[in-house]
Computed example of a mutant assay.
Amino acid sequence: MFNLNSCLGRLHGDRSRMTRTGSMTLPKTYIGVDVAKDWIDVFTASNQRFTRVPNRRDRLTKWAQGLTGDVMLIFEATGRYDRVLIACLEDNDVSYARVNPLRARQFARAAGLLAKTDRLDARILCTMGEALRPERATPIQLHRQRLHDLQARRDDIVNMITAEQNRLSVADDAFITKDIKASIRSLTKRREALQKQINAHIGAHEDLNEQNQRLQSVPGIGPQTACHLMASMPELGQVNRRQIASLVGLAPHASESGLYKGKRAIHGGRPRVRRAMYMAALVAIRWDPHWKAIYGQMRDDGKAAKTAIIAVARRLLVRINAMMKTGTSYQT
């Protein structure tokens, strides 16, 4: 039977011994953090203690300043609730890793822990950090965070417009039809206002403007896809081709066991970026001779249409990653 206390103890002991012998460089202390709207629950591996800190800038800043030694914080990516925490950690140069909540829950289930409480989640995240040793997260730039927020809001408005258009197609009452059309006009104006804000924000920052022009030199990459990449992929140019494909969710994963050889499939990643790259691949296949030929060769080799499109999307992403790394524009 899995025992969390003994596992954590063994991991902490092994880490301490490796640190003393110098055979491996590891953070001295892992800290699991469960983030909620009003507070964070903290579990520290070195002293096996729980702490609750209000999720306010002043209290989090004071707490972060009190962290000593080489520490690594592990917490789930929880949308807006962790933003103040991240800002305080970056201001005080404290290492942290944001993990996928699904991975953290799967780790807990693998440990035989089905219960879910804030304190237990913090402890599980600490153990997960000790076991998996995730890499330090890429620092978030404030102007890219604002671009992400603006683009996300624009996407919300677009989804609302689509929903209203779907309702309009089945509406048969004159008043309801008129009301839906008025709603669509209002939402369209808000979408256009957000797009102006996005364009102005990109133009006001030299790095975003330069990256935007470079991205749009790639076949199939238009303003919206470029914006998604800039806002949601700070790792572009910082990781290798396999890592970037996996981050977006375009890397094929094997499904094999014994003599069984299943089809490889993609899963996980960042869905908005993945959808944007899929549409970019469709455009590139249709209009660019180079990518059209690659797609045609895949189809001739027996690949299904969707599989070939995903493969083109992955190759486009890998090319973009290389461009960002070398600081060059697209070349066939």
Score class of each variant (00 low, 15 high):
R80Q: 12
R242A: 09
A122G: 10
T78S: 11
K178E: 15
D179V: 12
A152E: 05
T328R: 08
I180L: 14
Q216V: 07
R167H: 04
E130A: 07
R241C: 04
A251D: 06
I221C: 03
V33L: 03
A163E: 14
A276W: 11
V84F: 02
E206C: 08
N199I: 14
G327A: 06
A311Q: 03
Q65P: 05
P139V: 00
R146W: 04
D93M: 07
I285A: 08
I140C: 00
S169P: 02
H148F: 11
A226Y: 06
C88F: 01
K62V: 13
L150Q: 06
L187D: 09
V318T: 02
P223G: 08
A87M: 08
D155R: 07
D173C: 05
V53R: 03
I310W: 02
T326L: 06
H253Q: 15
I198W: 06
Q141Y: 01
Q238A: 00
F50M: 12
Q197S: 13
Q145E: 15
L113S: 07
L113T: 12
D58S: 15
R103N: 12
G129P: 03
N47A: 10
H290F: 13
P101Y: 08
H12C: 10
H253N: 12
G129Q: 04
R17C: 03
L60F: 04
N166K: 11
G9E: 07
R154Q: 12
H201T: 10
D300M: 08
L282N: 12
G13E: 13
A281N: 06
A304S: 14
L11F: 12
S186I: 10
P139A: 00
M18C: 05
A111Y: 09
R167F: 01
F107M: 08
K181C: 13
R17W: 04
A251G: 02
V84P: 02
G66Y: 10
R59M: 14
E76Y: 00
F175C: 08
Y96E: 02
D207L: 11
K325S: 05
G112M: 05
L316E: 02
V71D: 01
R274H: 11
L316I: 13
G32C: 00
A77R: 01
A137C: 11
L4T: 06
I202M: 12
T29V: 15
D58C: 11
L187A: 12
M233E: 01
S329R: 09
R59F: 11
V218R: 04
R314D: 11
R153I: 02
E130H: 05
N92C: 09
L150K: 07
C227P: 04
A171I: 06
D172L: 02
C88T: 03
D58I: 14
I310K: 08
A108R: 06
N100D: 15
A171Y: 09
G327Y: 04
S95G: 01
A97M: 02
G237L: 00
D41G: 07
Q141S: 04
T44A: 12
L317A: 01
Q145I: 01
D118R: 05
R274W: 12
L208T: 14
A152T: 15
D82V: 00
D34H: 05
R144Y: 04
A281S: 12
L208Q: 14
R83T: 01
L132T: 11
L26S: 03
D155E: 11
P252G: 08
D149Q: 14
